[in-house]
Amino acid sequence: MKRDCLLAVGWLAALSAAAVLAPFLLTNKSGAVDFSHLLEAPSRFHWFGTDALGRDLFARILVATSISLTVAWVAVILSVFLGVVIGAVAGYFGGGWDRSLMAFVNIMLCFPVFFLILSVIAVLGPNIFNVMVIIGATSWMGTARLVRAEVLSLKEREFVLAARALGASHARIIFRHLVPNAMGPVIVNAVLGLAAAVLVESGLSFLGIGVQPPTPSWGNLLSDGKGVLGVAWWLTFFPGVMIFLTILSANTLGEALQSKNDS
């Protein structure tokens, strides 16, 4: 288990480094359109081959890595933020707050996530910013329930009662005392959410409503490649592997954290 975790962390760290360094590793030339090298197989010159416009896939994947990771992180941070705030308010104040917020959570859970995503994209138009916001805005409900449950069980504990007796404000109690103590499961949820966000992004790209061209993302590279599966296996293979390894790492890490939390 430990080795798996190290590998997972290693992969995620390497990716993050690649994402951050991508702009420095690439020159203007790399990833440029080159009509004399359409759909070439991986070679010394193009490690991952080239696409239908002759662009170097390795360079595109490098850019896509930073795009996809950004999308996933922003979505997850948004989702955690919404989930924590809504869950904490519901749990802490109880009564009408709790009922109406949880009713809202229930309503959100009643809609197919895809319906929400499609409607919002239809209204706002598909672009990278909207994709991040939408994934985040449709995935916070689990976190909210979790935080609410934690807060419910924590709020009658001595240290909270003490804080209250000392006249601490509600906001202070929630964010200094309750939320930090509920963070364990939230972090697990966030790591698993990272994996989910990468998957959702690739699904949106499959449906053509994800990150817009020519900006590459793992998802749209993969779905662009599916049309040429028979001639250019590399166009689906490399993006597919990137997605696969990343989700696998995030899930492995998430599970490890979870079992650590449980024990």
Binding site: A32, P213, P214
Partner: peptide, 28 residues
């Protein structure tokens, strides 16, 4: 069509015009 957009975007960039591409579903 998507590819044509990308090619045009690149050619117009060469003469100093900035083109953004948006691919949108029919109804919208």
């Amino acid at each position: 069509r998507k590819m044509a957009c990308e090619i045009i975007q690149r050619r117009l960039r060469e003469i100093g015009i900035d083109v953004k591409i948006q691919v949108i579903e029919w109804g919208t």
